[in-house]
Amino acid sequence: MSETWIILGATSSMARAFARLKAEQGARLLLAGRDMAELRRLAADMRLRGAEEAEALALEARNPATFAPVIERAEAAGGMISAAIFIGSMPEQAAIDADPSLIEGVVADSFTGPARFLQMLAPVMEARGGGTVVGVGSVAGDRGRLGNYVYGAAKAGFATYLSGLRNRLGREGVHVLTVKPGFVDTAMTWGLEGMFLVASPEAVAASIERAMAKRKNTLYTPFFWRWIMLIIRLIPEPLFKKLSI
């Protein structure tokens, strides 16, 4: 029986590339997000690329009441259940400086929403005794930086959450992969200044696939971001606080 993949934030191009890999492998896909018209187009695309089934489901990260129906839908399908979380939002830091109330949304999208969803899904996955959780964090979560520290803080929270979840679910045969992309060529970064070494969503999706096969715990993608972030983390705080990288 083919596996079921829940894709949260399926309208992201990174998610689309990942879901297409799964579709070509014949998986069943539950595509969750908030743009239903788009999710239905995507579902058709996934079916025509080989998905055994693909369904569009409404989910709003800031409204946990929308979570249970998605989980129930996954439960109703037999076989292994896996989930990949691509939801996240990154308003410009200046916008948050101007309106601090934006913080709650950023944290809900990148951290608390996904975490609450996974917390509800965990027992189901434990009961099935397998499957994979792919949680997309960001290199921005490795250190608070001038340009996007609220987003970074939310991603750091999510990474810490995923590490704990790995600790818990690993005991039941469920693998948790934390993904930390560098710059990826998506809607989030399109037209932003200061982008370099930008990876394609397809390359990121393929690297996630390889990391899953190797049961890696944390994936920096492209790989060199592991070294870039190592250096950035090693900069002493007294110096770092004066930099604007």
Partner: peptide, 8 residues
């Protein structure tokens, strides 16, 4: 502009 979806 590089829309990722119809709405965009």
């Amino acid at each position: 502009a590089r829309p990722e979806k119809l709405a965009a």
